[in-house]
């Protein structure tokens, strides 16, 4: 069988190189019964197009960001809700206990997932230091077009979001059409946005991640042994990418520092003030069915559990 998988990761990127290596391994270990073909660089269209092509069977799977699968499985947006996590430790604790639930949810929605790969926390990047909610007021804050959740949250905070396609962000920063963006260090460097900003606020805004899914109808047709091989190889790659990306984000952070960008902290209490406001909007979104509220509460409970546990055992080593 041939598994045709699309991704927006560029050809030649490390991500793609790992994936192709994995494809070779699968081919050898299944004695050629399973070939994985990758279409990188977004040539199959955006995530919505890829989803459509999976439905008609032209493609069999794709690498999606959390946002790309909301239509299929709304709860996938949980980790990426804004201002949920305060640190990577919190996040690791929650992920080590919730990844499986989300993977099962995806499977129920008809997609086999091979795990989640970290993209890092989106951080506020701007031309003036941002230390408080007031520093954000009157500034033009970029929101990716069509991202209505983030837009609603910005408006809830009384801020002025500006929607722009990704292609316009670089010139938008250059010309002052937007003043503030939120992205991970890797993302800022990849799109060269870091050349147009001077300050990075360290408070995590939202967690970014990606997942590789394959249509369950197609996957179920593989023999049980072949399924096991594909799972083992792909899950291995995703686990590795997950840890690799954390290191890459750290490296990217350092690189941003050496290139003269300055890291600033929020004033004491500011983040919590924003968080309580944001949480209200998030809860409103949840009660409108944007995600399952019980699962959201479960996530919050886990965060509290992380803080109430004895200090010595802190930190979640993810499986």
């Amino acid at each position: 069988a041939v598994l045709k998988i699309a991704t927006i990761a560029p050809e030649g990127s490390q991500w793609m190189q790992e994936m192709r290596k994995g494809a070779d391994e699968i081919k050898t270990r299944t004695a050629g019964r399973v070939t994985v073909k990758f279409y990188g660089g977004g040539v199959m269209g955006n995530e919505k197009s890829v989803l459509r092509k999976i439905r008609i069977g032209q493609l069999h799977g794709g690498a999606f960001t959390g946002g790309g699968l909301i239509e299929v499985y709304p709860d996938i947006s949980l980790y990426s809700l804004p201002m949920v996590f305060r640190s990577l430790d919190e996040l690791d604790y929650v992920r080590s206990r919730m990844d499986k639930t989300l993977e099962q949810g995806l499977e129920g929605a008809g997609f086999v997932s091979f795990g989640f790969a970290e993209g890092g926390f989106a951080l506020i990047m701007a031309n003036k230091p941002v230390r408080s909610l007031d520093d954000l007021r009157g500034k033009k804050i970029w929101v990716p077009e069509g991202d209505s959740n983030t837009y609603a949250i910005m408006e809830g905070l009384g801020l002025s979001p500006v929607t722009l396609p990704i292609t316009d962000v670089l010139t938008g920063l250059q010309t002052g059409l937007i003043d503030i963006i939120g992205t991970s260090p890797i993302g800022a460097i990849a799109f060269q946005w870091h050349t147009k900003v001077q300050y990075i606020s360290t408070a995590p805004l939202a967690y970014l991640f990606a997942t590789l899914v394959v249509d369950r109808k197609v996957f179920d047709k593989l023999s049980v042994e072949d399924q096991a091989v594909v799972r083992e190889v792909m899950e291995g790659i995703y686990r590795q990418l997950d840890t690799q990306n954390r290191r890459d984000n750290e490296k990217a952070s350092v690189a941003l520092g050496t290139q003269g960008l300055e890291f600033v902290e929020f004033n004491p209490g500011e983040v919590e003030k924003m968080r309580s406001n944001v949480t209200e909007t998030v809860l409103a979104l949840g009660s409108k069915g944007a995600f399952s509220l019980p699962l959201y509460q479960e996530m919050r409970r886990l965060i509290e559990a992380y803080h109430s546990q004895p200090r010595s055992g802190a930190g979640g080593v993810r499986p």
Binding site: G138, K140, V143, E145, G146, D147, S148, Y151, S160, P161, V162, T163, L164, P165
Partner: peptide
Amino acid sequence: LRNILDTGFVWADE
């Protein structure tokens, strides 16, 4: 809207 009223319309681009 963006320049005068500091507001916008999230669905305009789409």
